Amino acid sequence: MIGKISKLRDVAVAKIKEAGSSAEVEELRVKLLGKKGELTEMLKDLKNMAIEERKQFGQEANALKNELSEIIEAKFKELSANDVKKSLSSGSNFDISLPGTHYKLGSLHPVTIVQKEIEKIFTGMGFNIVDGPEVEEEFYNFEALNIPKHHPARDMQDTYWLENGSLLRTHTSPCQVRAMQKYGAPLKVIAPGRCFRNESTDASHENTFFQLEGMMIDKNVSIANLIYVMKLLLSEVFQRDVKIRLRPGFFPFVEPGFELDLNCMICGGKGCPTCKHSGWIELLPCGMVHPNVLRYGGIDPEEYTGFAFGLGLTRLAMMKYGISDIRVLNSGDLRAMEQFSVR
């Protein structure tokens, strides 16, 4: 078998050196090293050899494979250089040495960049990413989140209703209920996605925006766990210390509930149209999951507790990149997007 390797080498090297075009070299490469090539077929006989013979034959075959690969690569380069010389000497109008046509590549949207960063942070903490439909059922968007019919809390979210009784989801919280029903407890999930509300647009409000909801459920989960995770998240996103404040807030699906505000990074807290001249941006509603929500998700609130939060991805992108008007992000203006995004 070793003799076959040596014979194959002599024949292969000679044929490669004689090749007069790149097509011939490629044909030889496939014939020698391809999935059904001569060397590959030889290696199939390894299983029929004794251990010592198999070891020696394998070493010789691998050495030949590496040698032929180097010779083939060198031949490709030689033929390519010859093509350039022929083109230049023939007086052709086409100069093969000129750089090619530059094609402009697309880039990621600022919200997409921020979303990917946050997903990386949370998956590093053991969270799973879940998704759900944008056209949602009333039960998941409201009732399962402790917002029953005719409850005043529904007025907090101006909703787009569809003729079939469904609606465009007003937040990604329905994904949390679906995750509880599917996976049970313990549970750590985040749900990024697009949301819709019948809002009057201004510098800080849009009718289409992106959120990221998150939830952690386990035994003995407390507000201290919530604060730790939120601080870690914001420090990782902004790569520096940020000024925040936590104040009481009402949300039907958490109890107690909080508003986490971020010191406006557009004006540095002095006041501007983006922060409505308050110096603060409402960024992250959060709180301990309401027992009714746990029950709707099929989890016993006597055994498990948890926290939940809702992060405005669109507003976070505004703070990260210093975008003063939220409407820019949905404008479709590539000139505006390219200065913030990366490939």
Rank of each mutant, 00 (worst) to 15 (best):
A144G: 08
Y103A: 03
G124E: 02
E213G: 13
N141S: 07
E134N: 11
D202M: 13
Q157G: 01
H171P: 06
L212T: 00
F209Q: 03
Y103C: 00
M156R: 00
P192M: 06
Q176V: 01
K188I: 02
E163W: 00
Y140W: 14
L105N: 06
E138H: 04
M125K: 15
F127N: 03
A185M: 14
T112R: 05
T208G: 06
P174C: 04
L167I: 10
V114I: 15
F139C: 03
F127P: 02
P174A: 04
N141Q: 08
S200F: 13
S173L: 04
A191D: 03
G126Q: 01
F210G: 00
P133Y: 08
M180G: 05
K188G: 03
T172N: 02
G184V: 07
I129N: 03
F210L: 00
E206W: 02
L168K: 13
D155Q: 14
Q157C: 11
K182Y: 09
I121L: 11
K188E: 07
P148E: 04
P133W: 05
T172L: 03
S166Q: 15
D202A: 13
C195P: 04
L167K: 04
T208K: 12
K116T: 05
V114H: 07
H102Q: 07
E138G: 00
S204E: 11
E136F: 02
Y140I: 10
L108K: 10
P186L: 07
P133Q: 13
L167Q: 02
K116Q: 15
N141Y: 05
N128P: 00
L108S: 05
I113H: 01
L108I: 02
N198P: 11
D202W: 15
D131W: 02
A203I: 02
F210R: 01
A185Y: 14
S107W: 15
Q181E: 12
R178E: 04
Y160I: 10
H150S: 06
V130D: 04
R194N: 03
F209T: 01
H109D: 03
H205T: 00
N207T: 15
W161N: 14
T112G: 09
S166H: 14
Y183Q: 05
H171D: 08
A179N: 09
N164A: 06
V111Y: 05
S107P: 00
Y103G: 01
A185T: 10
P110D: 05
P174G: 07
Q157F: 14
Q115C: 11
D158P: 12
N198M: 14
Y160V: 10
K116G: 04
T159W: 10
W161D: 07
E213C: 10
R197H: 07
M156S: 09
E163A: 15
F127A: 03
E117Q: 15
N207P: 12
E163V: 11
G106M: 02
E136D: 12
H102D: 05
K182T: 13
A153E: 05
K104M: 07
P192L: 04
N164M: 03
V189N: 05
F127T: 01
N198L: 12
E213H: 12
Y183V: 01
K116A: 12
E199R: 07
E136P: 09
K104A: 08
H171T: 12
P152C: 11
S107N: 13
F196L: 03
E138K: 08
L108Y: 10
L105C: 01
R194I: 05
T123M: 13
H171Y: 10
I113S: 06
N164C: 05
I147L: 10
Q115N: 14
A203S: 14
